[in-house]
Design a protein around this nucleic acid. Sequence first.
DNA 1: CCGCATCCCTATAGATACTG
DNA 2: CAGTATCTATAGGGATGCGG
Lengths: 141, 141
Amino acid sequence: MKKAKEILQRSDCPISYTLDFFGDKWTLLILRDMMFDGKTSYGEFLQSKEKIATNILADRLGALESNGFVSKTVSPENKSKFVYTLTEKGIALLPVILEMTIWGSKFSPAGGNKELLKVLKSDKEKTIKDFTKLLKKRIQA
Amino acid sequence: MKKAKEILQRSDCPISYTLDFFGDKWTLLILRDMMFDGKTSYGEFLQSKEKIATNILADRLGALESNGFVSKTVSPENKSKFVYTLTEKGIALLPVILEMTIWGSKFSPAGGNKELLKVLKSDKEKTIKDFTKLLKKRIQA
DNA sequence: CCGCATCCCTATAGATACTG
DNA sequence: CAGTATCTATAGGGATGCGG
């Protein structure tokens, strides 16, 4: 039995609310892996370059699931494996993540995703819309 | 003497880089107060409804300053008071914060800023551009 | 062995009281 | 006004466990 670790809302401010849940260093990285790399399993998340600890990963996946950002199902191929997929509520975070990508690409010493930046620059709104559509399609299959 | 608390970069990923610095529950709220409420002083930040602790505020202001997101100057009116203002690097985070506002407004039980949402919906890119211009003007005065 | 969870211990975040 | 000091709670790293 898992306790659902509810979100404690500090104020009515929408920014504050967003940070109440996503204001940590790991949660959005999991969503990134799902959105951009199509990852769906615990093991795949573990392999990301930032090296998330197993307990943190389990905790965040649980929180994401119990708050409706991802759904957890048993893998059809492997009964002892779980598949995590984005919900629409999770997909709705794409614009936030993309803006973070843009900002990070501009200011990180490591540079950023030049390809993505070029596409975004030409028509950001369209890119967001199209990518959202793609993600939604992916979860229907 | 203050240690500059450098950012430890977990990977080359721009999203990860953004989270390395802004992946906490308070830093962006300070920027929110500066952007949307025009706050400029320690005392004003303390009064926000989320009730930030004094040591956290001091810590975050120090980090924001030493990393070039805000600048700290002595108040012209009151020599024993400091004035914090956004830099261009800080202003560049506006799109991220606005997307968080949009997301939070959509999903927070408390609802959100309906006015802002309406404006953003009609032309998001223009709104961001105009507001950025306003913020830049503000720091030149 | 792999996928996932738990335990333990340290480091950091954060609340409250206090100070130059 | 603008912080520090001190103390406690929580996040997080690494090892370990356990079932297939």
